[in-house]
Design a protein around this nucleic acid. Structure first.
Lengths: 121, 121
DNA sequence: TCGTTATATGAGCATATGATCATGTAGTTG
DNA sequence: CAACTACATGATCATATGCTCATATAACGA
């Protein structure tokens, strides 16, 4: 309750966050609220990749993948590196994986009594 | 890397999550991607409240607040308790605050060099 | 039963966002 | 310069979602 998170968290837990901050937080969640973008983030876990590779890994069209990469980059979740003809994208904010872990854990608990969708059953 | 989170996280970090799970995760993020819903969650940090109170705290209309409460309840983030004429809502999944903290921390870092929006400056 | 209060919901409108197609742009090679 | 490759983007359509108004439902009291 002291380091980088402190101030915003303190506000979150005690007084009201300003509408502006709520907008920012909501926007961050919205960026993560698309399966294709999650898939792209997941594809980048083991290092930067160019667009062509990501198109192959995700099975999306080039245009669509490119748009989602832009959305993620605009949100500062990815960084872009141009090298000749190719553009390489990489995770810029690893904290997103903690987010996904939390969500997965929560969902897992939630669905624990039901079908084992998380185990591919 | 062993407890409730383990399986989904392992999948998240190593092999591909199934499209179904990606949908679920995306949906969870989508639920959190609305300022009004964040505001409602924030209003419920200090305990359950009825709809009327939440309408007052958030400044929304009764119809709109009711709809968002339903969305949050459907997502299992809130629980509903009816008592006479009133309905009380409460946080059902405290992990959402960890999510918000992570996002706030990330945004704070991101905006550190810019205006101090997090400090209300 | 009738009226009142608290909450939920159907219908409609406005806007936002994702997917696709076609084309544009930048860099490379001949 | 021309052709090619890798990526980005304008235009369009379809869908999803939020907001509002009006009304429905449910529980309570007179």
């Amino acid at each position: 309750m002291s380091s980088p998170l402190s101030i915003a968290c303190f506000l979150m837990k005690t007084r009201s966050l300003s509408p502006e901050v709520l907008e920012l937080v909501a926007r961050r969640f919205a960026v993560l609220a698309e399966p294709m973008r999650l898939r792209l983030l997941q594809s980048l876990i083991d290092g930067e990749k160019n667009v062509h590779t990501l198109v192959g890994l995700t099975g999306g069209t080039q245009a669509n993948v490119s748009r989602h990469l832009q959305t993620l980059t605009d949100a500062h979740l990815l960084r872009r590196r141009k090298e000749g003809l190719q553009v390489f994208y990489a995770i810029a904010d690893p904290s997103i994986f903690k987010l996904c872990e939390l969500v997965c854990g929560s969902l897992e608990k939630e669905h624990a009594a039901r079908a084992g969708v998380f185990r591919g059953e």
